[in-house]
């Protein structure tokens, strides 16, 4: 498998020009920042409130923008052009994910600053956020591959947003319904638990298990996305 920086940056540059002229998707980028500013001014200083905003950023930017980018390529029949070019699956995946990833990094950093969140161990939080961003971009790729249009992706994102921003609401129900214990392993809850532990003084070693769980999600989501992508290369 080849890895050409020229091809990856060409796809990134194309996506940037395309997205910058797509008002429908670009306005979405400002939503998490507005929420963060609002939360910051309201003085809601709990870890879970910070992570509602951060997860919102992940879902609206990493997942939604990414799914819109992929779904639009499918809707307009341009994805097949990329698939038929010499670019490898890895190059197309990286090129198509880079813009969403950069936008997520900018929006999540902005959200952290606007909401006045100052974690006790920034390095551990940065690693966890980085891994989470990669996961949510992968989730967006998968949604984009399954949906047929940007409009469909916009509908599918709603339940995804509910699951990944309010999963913590299910935690009190775990005692009553043990089957819901699996919810604790969701990447958003792992991130929240890690952030809570960091505030109690935990370091990298203490939070490694949480990071590994998020990493496992990253690997699984990208493997599934790659499988679906390869299936989409061939018509039924």
């Amino acid at each position: 498998m080849t890895f050409s920086a020229r091809r990856i940056f060409a796809i990134l540059q194309k996506d940037y020009k395309d997205l910058s002229r797509n008002l429908y998707v670009t306005t979405t980028l400002f939503m998490p920042l507005l929420m963060a500013a609002l939360f910051g001014r309201m003085g809601m200083g709990t870890i879970s409130s910070y992570y509602i905003v951060i997860n919102m950023g992940f879902i609206l930017v990493a997942t939604y923008v990414q799914s819109a980018l992929i779904a639009e390529e499918k809707e307009k029949n341009t994805l097949r052009g990329l698939m038929l070019s010499p670019a490898s699956t890895m190059e197309i995946f990286c090129g198509k994910s880079l813009l969403s990833f950069i936008a997520t990094a900018v929006v999540v950093t902005g959200s952290i600053l606007l909401s006045n969140y100052n974690p006790r161990n920034m390095a551990v939080i940065a690693i966890a956020l980085l891994l989470s961003a990669v996961f949510y971009v992968g989730l967006g790729t998968l949604i984009g591959l399954f949906t047929k249009s940007v409009m469909e992706a916009s509908v599918v994102i709603v339940p995804v947003m509910l699951i990944f921003t309010s999963g913590s609401l299910l935690i009190p129900l775990i005692e009553k319904y043990p089957v819901l214990a699996v919810v604790e392993y969701m990447p958003n809850l792992q991130l929240l638990e890690l952030a809570d532990r960091v505030e109690t003084g935990a370091g990298l070693g203490d939070t490694l298990l949480h990071l590994l769980v998020i990493l496992a999600w990253v690997l699984v989501i990208h493997a599934v996305a790659a499988y679906v992508y390869k299936k989409r290369m061939v018509d039924e």
Binding site: K14, K17, T78, R80, G81, L84
Partner: peptide, 14 residues
């Protein structure tokens, strides 16, 4: 190989 079929389109905003 070069391919021109009905499902190889262009980017409208570019």
């Amino acid at each position: 190989v070069g391919i021109v079929t009905d499902n190889t389109a262009l980017y409208g905003r570019l």
